[in-house]
Design a protein around this nucleic acid. Structure first.
Lengths: 216, 216
DNA sequence: CTCCTTTGTGAATCTCTATTCACATTATAC
DNA sequence: GTATAATGTGAATAGAGATTCACAAAGGAG
């Protein structure tokens, strides 16, 4: 099969990529070392040259996911100074990310990555907290700028933000891609952002937004 | 162990109850016949007297969940005629239901109940569609009564409704019950219901937005 | 009470998958 | 080039869990 030998760092990346891919199509239950190894072009036992065991692979996979999520946060930080616009862009990136890597929500929300493993559970919690922390940060900025009403805490807002995509993502998956996540998320964002805007009534959309959309 | 024999109907209920319980604490991965049987006070092989196999148990479990969810819908129908109030009550019931049966979201959203099993996937989809259909029905009524803005379809609204609890429920679980789902859901509902109400703050649609989205 | 169906049991089987290990092969340092 | 470490392989091991089966016991019908 694979005659050529590659550095363990390269293999580790390949393995994680493969694992995420397997999860995307077979779910966490279908994540077995045989499938992963085949996809990399190796034999199952070879995986142990690069990871301690299956648990190590899952841990690293969570790390990969974390870096992708936080990568999106960093990216939108560079794209705009307007916190509300940043959130909108983040939402859009988020949707794209999970559309392209259906395995991500499956790993994070599998509710069974852990199960007995409470350490893993804590790890997932930390990951979510970190991501939501950044989201809350944007809301906090927006409130300080007077853009968003202050009767809701940034933390609460961040959880609501998560709610804009999550159910849609699930429907998308369960419907085998039939459900239009993107559209639903956009609509939900529209309603939500209007609702939380400071002022008596919702303010009209900023023009910046239209521009930002196009470059995407 | 269990010397007494019970009718298969009784056992079926006990088994499903036990299965849901196991899922609640161990996740879908921890759902094995041994654990279920122990909880019922039987031996694993005895389960085959009441179900064809494990798959049959999971199927029936989905049925049980469906009946609980739809039971809540029926209940709120009797409690009020006001569709918006009904939704609020439904939300509350929903939160209570998943707080008391943490296994329910785990089964439905496990994203791995199926995996390869696409028939199961379709079954879950149907279940969600049915529940969301009722929710959408309430929104439709509310719109006809002039209570809710009509620029969003009932279907879209129903998905947003789902988003009010789901992320909170996940955080609640991952945080080992530390997160306050009830409070979060109440706040989210307040924001959401204000946002969709028909009335003074009827925000004009920005057509640019809809156009920009479509290109994506 | 006796027969027969239903339900429960324990051992055995079977499959799947993680993991280990002894050995082979490739890359790399010298 | 040779030595050495890193990487890959195939077979073997081990454990978990689903499923089957022959047998036992309970409960109802007659």
């Amino acid at each position: 099969m694979a005659r050529e030998k590659l550095d363990t760092e390269v293999r580790q990346e390949q393995i994680l990529e493969a694992a995420l891919d397997v999860v995307s199509r077979k779910g966490m239950k279908g994540l077995n070392l045989g499938a992963v190894a085949r996809r990399v072009g190796l034999v199952p036992s070879a995986l142990y040259r690069h990871f301690d065991n299956k648990d190590g692979i899952i841990d690293a996979l969570l790390g990969l996911i974390e870096s992708r999520l936080l990568g999106n946060v960093a990216a939108v930080r560079h794209e705009t100074k307007d916190p509300l616009l940043a959130l909108e862009l983040l939402l859009r990136r988020h949707v794209r990310l999970i559309r392209e890597n259906a395995g991500i929500p499956r790993v994070v929300f599998s509710e069974e990555v852990y199960g007995a493993n409470s350490q893993r559970k804590a790890q997932v919690y930390e990951l979510l907290q970190k991501y939501l922390g950044h989201v809350a940060g944007f809301f906090g900025e927006a409130q300080q700028d007077g853009l968003v009403r202050t009767d809701l805490s940034p933390d609460e807002l961040s959880v609501m933000f998560l709610g804009l995509v999550q159910p849609a993502a699930i429907l998308w998956h369960v419907s085998d891609g039939g459900f239009d996540v993107t559209r639903q998320a956009e609509k939900a964002w529209r309603v939500f952002s209007e609702a939380i805007r400071n002022g008596e009534c919702g303010t009209p959309e900023t023009e910046e937004f239209a521009l930002a959309v196009k470059e995407n």
